[in-house]
């Protein structure tokens, strides 16, 4: 489908909206977690269902992946994937202000994921005069919880095993780096093609004002 391709202006506009959302979300996070979040330019690209697992190759090293669905008015919806690397899971409890044995690593990962996803998307939505609702976050895969010996399964395998009912998705990748705890985590938003068309019309409306 060609009409889902964003042109340069649309891409730029989306990028700027994401930038502002990222900035405000990071500010809230920084205050809540009492730390500083280092911001990088987010990446936006279109991926085909076939190549999704390829584009997630790097992320395949993740120990844990949390998925959370989001949906707003005007047919804007998608799925957020939060990816954690092995070295980072130890630092989570510290970051969230829990005592070490107060809750499991899985719970910490889910908790932080939900905070990262909802703070970002709330600001994102308010910028385009929308409002988001969320599904409960789910741990898709965690090597910590892995009790079988075939621990080679990874996010790309996990995704490969599903057959999708979409052809193209918009992939937005945002990297969070928390300096005080040297903690990293990637947030990947996947927006299916029917929703891209809806986002595009919202973007066009914003661009008309310029």
């Amino acid at each position: 489908m060609n009409n889902v391709n964003l042109n340069e202006d649309q891409q730029d506009c989306l990028q700027e909206i994401i930038n502002v959302a990222m900035g405000q979300a990071s500010d809230q996070l920084a205050r809540y977690l009492d730390t500083f979040v280092y911001l990088k330019v987010p990446s936006i690209e279109q991926v085909s269902a076939q190549h999704l697992s390829d584009t997630l190759k790097y992320e395949a090293q993740s120990v844990a992946v949390v998925s959370q669905g989001f949906f707003g008015y005007e047919g804007i919806r998608g799925e957020a994937l939060l990816m954690y690397q092995p070295k980072d899971s130890d630092r989570l409890a510290d970051l969230l202000g829990y005592e070490p044995d107060e809750l499991s690593v899985e719970e910490q990962i889910i908790d932080l994921s939900s905070i990262l996803t909802t703070t970002f998307l709330n600001v994102f939505a308010s910028q385009i005069d929308n409002q988001m609702s969320y599904s409960a976050p789910r741990l898709l895969f965690s090597s910590n919880a892995d009790n079988n010996t075939s621990s080679q399964s990874s996010i790309s395998e996990h995704i490969q095993h599903n057959s999708f009912n979409w052809d193209t998705a918009l992939k937005v990748k945002i990297s969070y780096q928390v300096t005080d705890y040297s903690f990293n985590c990637d947030m990947i938003l996947l927006i299916p093609e029917s929703a891209i068309i809806n986002i595009t019309s919202v973007i066009d409306r914003i661009l008309e004002e310029y």
Binding site: E16, V20, G23, S26, D27, F36, L39
Partner: peptide
């Protein structure tokens, strides 16, 4: 003029000689 409105960042740019910090948009 930035979206990165964390207090730490605002202080940093002012220390580096910026006249003011304005939040986006």
């Amino acid at each position: 003029i930035s979206a990165d409105i964390q207090p730490e960042m605002q202080n940093k740019v002012l220390e580096l000689g910026a006249k003011a910090f304005l939040r986006k948009p």
